[in-house]
């Protein structure tokens, strides 16, 4: 099991999940708010649509193409 921090809150999970999958384990699967404030979640699942971009360890990256790592910090883009 590994621990990932989502907006500062620890989440314990098995290994091998993508950050997008991890979001579905949280209270809300939202990745970001759109430019008009709408909630958005992973959509295309394969690195095309950019809906799931979040800040991972300080850099903006795609949740659907990033594997969770022990101690990783993920912040939603709001």
């Amino acid at each position: 099991m590994i621990t990932v921090y989502l907006d500062g809150q620890p989440l314990v999970m098995g290994e091998g999940l993508t950050v997008a999958a991890m979001l579905t384990l949280s209270e809300s699967s939202i990745a970001r708010l759109s430019c008009t404030g709408q909630p958005r979640a992973p959509f295309c699942g394969m690195g095309i649509c950019q809906e799931c971009r979040v800040t991972i360890d300080g850099r903006r990256q795609l949740a659907c193409q990033t594997l969770c790592q022990e101690g990783m910090h993920v912040e939603r883009t709001v």
């Binding site: 098995g14 991890m22 579905t24 699967s29 909630p39 958005r40 992973p42 699942g45």
Partner: peptide, 22 residues
């Protein structure tokens, strides 16, 4: 179609394979 919970068809498959819980 922009509501959270809506994905592509292949996208759902990809998310599940990547560990999403459904």
């Amino acid at each position: 179609w922009t509501l959270p919970g809506v994905t592509g068809a292949g996208a759902l498959q990809a998310l599940i394979k990547s560990g999403a819980s459904v």
